[in-house]
Computed example of a mutant assay.
Amino acid sequence: MSWLYLGIAVIFEITVALSAGKAAGFTNLRWTIATLASGGVATYFLSLALLTFDVGVGYAIWTSVAGVGIVLLGALLFQQRLNWKKVVGIVVVIGGVVGLQLSGAA
């Protein structure tokens, strides 16, 4: 169940980043509310996942997977450039997450 909670937390963390980009420095009320609400939900589900995961490992996986998701969705939805350096970074992050999982994190 902790992996499900972590997955939900990742989805809402990605939502935080995408909403914050639209919030225009918190001047757009609807996107500001979406940013804050999704941040609360993301934190709640992360806290549930951390009942099983070590805090450092769970948090590292959460931020890493969300970061990769944000970069990929930025490229898909907002035509942001995805160059070879970003792809190498994504591969390194995924390798790190796999390494944490193989360490027996949860």
Rank of each mutant, 00 (worst) to 15 (best):
Y5I: 06
N28Y: 13
I11M: 11
A23Y: 14
L46M: 12
I90L: 08
A34E: 04
S38L: 02
Q101H: 06
A24N: 14
W84D: 14
L82Y: 01
V55R: 07
F45Q: 07
L73Q: 02
V91H: 08
G89M: 10
G58E: 07
L100Q: 03
D54W: 06
R81T: 15
S103E: 01
V87C: 05
S64L: 00
S2T: 07
Y5G: 08
Y5P: 09
T52R: 09
T27N: 14
A105Y: 08
A34D: 07
L76D: 00
T63I: 12
V10H: 02
I61M: 06
G89W: 10
K85E: 15
V97S: 10
G104T: 09
Q80I: 01
I8Y: 11
A42P: 04
L36P: 02
L46W: 06
Q80L: 05
G74Q: 01
D54G: 14
K22W: 08
L46H: 12
L51C: 02
L51I: 04
F45M: 09
N28M: 12
F26E: 14
A17Y: 01
Y59A: 09
I11C: 12
A34H: 04
L73Y: 04
V68P: 05
I14P: 02
L73M: 11
L4T: 15
T32A: 13
A37E: 03
I90V: 15
L29V: 15
A42W: 01
L51E: 13
V92D: 08
A60M: 14
V65L: 13
L4I: 15
I94D: 10
I11H: 05
L102S: 12
S38F: 03
S64I: 02
T52L: 00
Y59L: 02
G40N: 06
A20R: 09
L36M: 09
I14E: 02
G58R: 06
V92L: 15
M1K: 12
L77W: 13
V16F: 07
